[in-house]
Each structure stands twice: as C-alpha cells, then as structure tokens.
Design a protein around this nucleic acid. Structure first.
Lengths: 209, 209
DNA sequence: CTGTGTGAATCAATTCACAGCT
DNA sequence: AGCTGTGAATTGATTCACACAG
C-alpha cells in the first residue's frame, strides 16, 4: 500500500485534503464505514474521481464493501505526510493570532513550533500561552527543533524579506497570506492564500452567473 | 474586446487574479508597459500561458510592443468583475477583524458592506470604525444595499447555519474559512480557504521532495 | 449482487510554432 | 526585428465501462 509520488495531478492533491477533512468529520460522528459514493457526495465530486485519486497511492478499500473510515483517514495522513508537522507563525497581528488559535484547536496534526515577529513592541508578549520571539531566532530554533512550515502573516511590505529570512533559516515550505508573489529558490514550496484573490475569483464566477 | 465567459478553464481564472496582483504592483512602481514574458516571470508562469489566458477574453496588447499596464489592469478588473464589490464579514473574531482590516487597506476594489456576528457580547462593538451588527440584519441590509460576497469567519460548529442564513438573505457567493464542506443550493458559489488544508497541501509537496 | 480498482476512451489544459501587426 | 494572438499538436486529467473480489 501507499505506492507514492509519481506524476500525481495537482487537483488530486487538493481533493485528498478535502477527503481527509470530510472523513475526520464523519469519523467524529461515529461512522465506521463509507463507500466512494458517499464520500464523493460529502466532498462534492464524483465517486470515480474518489477511487481514481486514491488509486494513485494504493488500494485502501474492500470490493463490495467500501472503506473503513479510520483506516482511510490514517492512509490519507500518511499520503499527505501531515502528521506532527511543526508550523511557525511569522507575524503575530490579528491574522497570525487567529491562525495560531485555529491550529491549536484544530486537531489536524499540526503543532505550533513558535510565534515570531520583528516588531519589538510585540516580541515578549504572550499569545495563547506562547511567548512571541524575534524573527532572528528562527534559524537557531529550527536547528534545535525542526520547523516544517512557516505561515507568513506579515504585511505586504515585509513579506519578501520575511520569506527570505525563513528560507535562510532552513525552512522549505511557506504558506503566504501576503498579497504578493514571492520569488524564492525552486527548492522552496510556496502556497498563496491571498484573500483578495479569493474574492476576485468569486467575483468572476458571480459575473459568469 | 472582452469577449467573455464560455468554457473558461478554472486554472485560467486563478492565474488572472495573480496577473492582476502583479500588474497593480508594477503599476505602483511606475511601469507603463510590460511584455507577456516579463509578466510571466513575475507571476511564475510561461509567456504563452499569459497570452492564451488573456486571449479567451479578447486582445489587449499591441504586436511588437506589449501591454499598457494600466489598460491591462482595467481589462482584468472588467473580466474578473471585481470592481466595487461589497463584502460582508460574518463572524468578527480575530480572523474576521484581520480580514476587515486587510480589505479596508487593500485598494483592490472591495468595499466592506458590514460586520455581522450572532454573539450578543460582540454585537454593538466597533471594529475599524464599523459597528458589529447581528446576523439577523443581513437580509434587510442586503435588500437596502446589495451585498455581493459573504466571508465566513465563524467556528466550524456554526458555519453551515451561517452559510444558510447568508443564502436566505440573498447572498450568492461565499468565501469559507471554516474547515467544513458547505452544502448549499447550486446557484451559490463557494470558495474554501481552510488553513489546515493549505498546510496539508504543503506537507504533501514537502514529503514529495 | 454490491462496490472497488483500473486500463481505455474522452475531454480539458498547456505548449508549440508560426502568421500577422507595429 | 520584436512581441502578440491563435490554431494545431501535445500533454494531462476526468470519465467510462467493466473485470474482479467479497
């Protein structure tokens, strides 16, 4: 099982995250087994799509029966590699604090590795039981206790600099909330989460009726 | 020009938002003209891709010359239909406040139509100069002064309910920050912005080296 | 007889290659 | 000569249809 990583379609990865979310939800409701058709309905895709997406990585169900929910959740966490990932928040304003709170509660396998800011007025303050540290501590902290992902919650004007700081601290994955396209070495993987872009996307489909 | 809306690839729409962002940025730096190659480099795609994406909607450049930055920004705003859209924030905790602030500053064509919450402890409080109103005012406010998009910043447990409230108030586009797949009539367009899903996506590409 | 897993067929998106303005 | 715009070719993703296991 869990064959792995060769020409996986991008859209497949997006959907795997969604299946994971839906499955965790039904698992909490006590559901033990699920068919591709039911999972597909929850996720808003076709049943063939669910089966094809999973088939890139192995076979996780039983023919004529369906999938064991707990097993499939575990399989997806293995595929996505999202178990016990350590996440640093860079920029602890409203947005950074919100995300810290969100992750602390979410039980989705992410641990907060630290909160960082470069504003001396913020450094030393406590947010959700953690002390905000200066960004220049990133490299040292990463060396001592691996940081997997940096979440950039800084203003546009300091985003490129903060991203470069994260990269030179040895961090290789960035979730970027700033409305800017980061230019970084190709070994670094970046995902953009620009709210205004999301609103533009919605505007387009609104206009298209 | 601006041919419009027939079988536009989904990924094209994503990229148009990105081009818009890059162009606004260079426009602020005073750049007047740009080639598809330069815009492509900024956006991190190929030049042919830029030209093909634009060609679905018309022709906006001059052969042998390039694009007038201001004209192309205007064309994209027309295509995306994102000018003067009115956005309501539903759920005004840390995240909702952060987004309100973000939009108020962003100059990207979005106006805050109102801040709504169903927690009586929050209703009446001021955030960035606006009074938080109760969610049951949505329908009335929408009727008086059109709300185009609702941004859902409520906890998972109330997200489906809040989305239904927005829809019955007549809102047809939702940006959903709650980690849940909303089930709504097909006329409503939903975009998910689940942070944990973004982190899972990054985890996957990290594992894939 | 139900529901998975998967090659084959179809449909969609990207890249190529070049014609056509400036 | 330089750069856009766009059909044609190619590559990628989804859907179909059916073999196979319980």
């Amino acid at each position: 099982m869990a064959r792995r990583r060769k020409n996986i379609p991008g859209p497949t990865v997006e959907r795997l995250c969604r299946y994971h979310r839906c499955l965790r939800r039904v698992a909490r409701r006590g559901v033990k087994r699920i068919s591709s058709a039911d999972l597909a309905a929850l996720a808003g895709v076709s049943p063939e799509q669910v089966r094809k997406d999973l088939s890139y990585f192995g076979s996780f169900g039983r023919r004529g029966v369906g999938y064991e929910v707990d097993d499939l959740v575990a399989a997806l966490e293995d595929i996505l590699g999202c178990k016990d990932r350590r996440v640093a928040i860079i920029g602890v304003g409203n947005l950074g604090s919100a995300i810290a709170g969100y992750l602390a509660d979410s039980e989705r396998g992410f641990e907060i590795a630290g909160l960082y800011d470069n504003d001396p007025a913020r450094v030393g303050h406590m947010v959700r039981g953690m002390r905000i540290k200066h960004v220049n501590r990133l490299a040292e902290d990463n060396q001592r206790n691996k940081i997997d992902i940096a979440v950039l919650c800084v203003p546009e004007s300091s985003a490129q600099q903060a991203a470069e700081d994260a990269v030179s601290a040895g961090i290789r994955a960035i979730l970027n909330f700033a409305p800017i396209t980061l230019h970084l070495p190709p070994k670094v993987v970046v995902r953009d989460a620009d709210v205004a872009a999301d609103l533009e996307w919605l505007s387009f489909w609104l206009s298209a009726h």
